[in-house]
Amino acid sequence: MGFLNIPDKIREIIPFEASAFVVEEITLQSSFIPFYGAGEVLFKKGDQALGFYWVLSGEAEIIIPGKRSIILSAGAMAGLDSFLEGGTLPFDVVNRGQHLNCLFIDRRCYNNMREHHEFNRYMNSMVMNCLKSYRNLLVPAPRTYL
């Protein structure tokens, strides 16, 4: 994926119709980060969560030593829980596949997204996903898919 079709990609992954203006704003305020190889680091344990990654395509993986990993596919948000908490990342987050495309969302962009009802609801569901994924760690299964 190039750098130019980010608005289209956002529209593809959100489960609702968003106005062109809002999508354009998100594109301007976020930064696009492509990852090219498996194992490339999105966050290292201990990194300050000044923002979070929104996966546009590909898969990221939260590595939890001695536990199952959590897979983040298109639409999922990596580091959202730590960002909301205002803390540091408790685990490493890495690129799982060959090509991963993400948007990095900082505080300003996040606040802007929160101002739009549909995005606000979407973000709430992402927070619930985070909770679900950690809760699922208690269940013995090889992986959790979000």
């Binding site: 750098f3 594109t27 301007l28 980060i33 680091v41 990194d47 900082d106």
Partner: peptide, 19 residues
């Protein structure tokens, strides 16, 4: 990859780990 950015667009954010 050659990329164009509009005025006000963010290239990189503090706290991210660009590759």
């Amino acid at each position: 990859t050659c990329v164009s950015f509009k005025k006000g667009q963010v290239l990189m954010h503090e706290g991210a780990r660009p590759q």
